[in-house]
Simulated assay, not measured.
Amino acid sequence: MEFKNYINGKWVDGKNRFQTINPASEELLAEVAQAETSDVEAAVGAATEAFKSWRLVPAPLRGELLFKIGDILKQKKEDLARLLTQDMGKVISEARGDVQEAIDMAYFMGGEGRRMLGYTAPVEMPNKFGMAVRDPAGVVGLITPWNFPIAVPSWKIFPALVAGNTVIWKPSPETPAISAAFVQVFEEAGVPAGVFNLLLAPGAEVAKALVSHPEVRVLSFTGSTTTGRAIAESAARLNKKLSLEMGGKNAILVLDDANLELVTDATLWAAFGTTGQRCTAASRLIVQKGIAGKVKEALVERTRTLKLGNGLEETVEIGPVINKAALDRIHNYVQIGLQEGARALVGASVADVNGKGFFYSPTLFDGVRPGSTLEAEEIFGPVLAI
């Protein structure tokens, strides 16, 4: 497979290419045209020009176009889900849910095309009245992660478009295949040239050029806290509107009267769903002493039975992590936890699944002290600290 950048309604090749591999098999999935900073200029130019006419399209008609996108996504749901799993590894049931979120968002925001309501307000001057109407901001730059490669972008793209803005999307270089396939849906639906643009590139240069471009008036970023802070600093210098969704270190609280079966089910999903690669993943379990022993026993028993493998197999429960660097980072955190005195109840090792792929055994730690590395830092992998 080959994928290109999408600028001004055309698929654009690049001087250089990069590759995306299936993290479950380490096999080449696609060759991808690499965007350069010059492509940022081209995309901004196209989006700026398209904004002049797109902003004047009545909002209900923009909403109808989103309904059409939702219909096409429904038709292509299974194909998109399977490509998503190949691109980043999550199990197929989760991939289907990822696509479904975009379908739901298309219909939800399509309806907003008929709810772009303003308001009137009383004023202190005689023979005057005040009113407010919604006005699009202009060119919107979106930077999104690989762990929800359709769902998260849909939360940003559809609201921006229905409100009359034009969009430049820079997805993660870890998921270029599914990103390009997502854009193909917009093209098929008839989104006008320049209204929606796609830039595919590894590294930070293209993203930095997008963030710092003076014609990009709104930015929305989902990713690491470190990167989000840097984007906030850059955006602030140009008074850009900015939305950030960054890291998390979430906890589940379990009291003595909790339902043990419910605790076990909920904790396994929260900790190991998407192989723990979510800012919403629960990486801490805070348990009252009266039920702690039973909770640990139940979690260890269930964790040992979780099936790792290629996410395209319907019976697989845990897929690979995104790449070798992530695998090494997770294992390094586990080693730090052991050095700091935490006790591994299960897992704590790289998993062998047919000798291929980037798999890590779901891991439970006991005796994790407040303030320790495992308790304080986001690991972004299948590791739960009790």
Rank of each mutant, 00 (worst) to 15 (best):
E2N: 13
N5V: 04
N8I: 03
G9F: 03
K10R: 11
W11P: 02
G14Y: 12
A24L: 06
L28D: 04
A35V: 01
E36Y: 11
E36K: 07
A43R: 01
A47I: 03
S53D: 14
R55K: 15
G63A: 08
F67C: 05
I69W: 05
D71Q: 14
D79N: 10
R82G: 09
T85S: 14
M88W: 06
I92H: 01
I92R: 06
M109A: 12
M109V: 06
R114W: 11
P126C: 09
P126A: 13
A132C: 12
R134S: 11
P136A: 09
G138W: 14
V140A: 05
G141I: 03
P145W: 02
N147K: 02
I150R: 02
V152H: 02
F158K: 03
V162G: 06
N165I: 00
I168V: 00
I168Y: 03
S172D: 12
T175L: 06
P176W: 13
S179K: 08
A180L: 12
Q184D: 08
G194F: 10
A201H: 07
P202H: 09
A207R: 04
K208Q: 14
L210M: 09
V211Y: 10
S212G: 13
H213F: 13
E215F: 12
S220E: 07
F221V: 02
S224Y: 01
T225N: 08
T225I: 06
T227P: 04
G228P: 00
A230Y: 05
A235L: 06
A236P: 13
R237L: 13
L238A: 01
N239W: 11
K241Y: 10
S243M: 07
L244R: 04
L244K: 02
I252T: 02
D256Y: 07
D257T: 01
N259W: 12
L260V: 01
L262C: 07
D265F: 15
A271V: 03
A271R: 02
F272E: 03
F272A: 09
T274M: 11
T275H: 09
R278Q: 09
A281K: 00
V287A: 08
Q288S: 08
Q288G: 04
G293R: 01
V295L: 07
K296N: 14
E297F: 13
E297S: 15
L299I: 03
E301P: 08
K307L: 15
I318G: 02
K324Q: 14
A326S: 10
H331P: 04
N332E: 15
I336C: 05
I336S: 02
G337V: 06
L338I: 05
V346E: 07
A348C: 13
A351G: 01
K356W: 10
P362N: 15
T363G: 05
L364M: 12
F365E: 02
R369L: 15
R369M: 15
T373Q: 13
A376S: 15
I379P: 01
F380P: 04
P382Y: 13
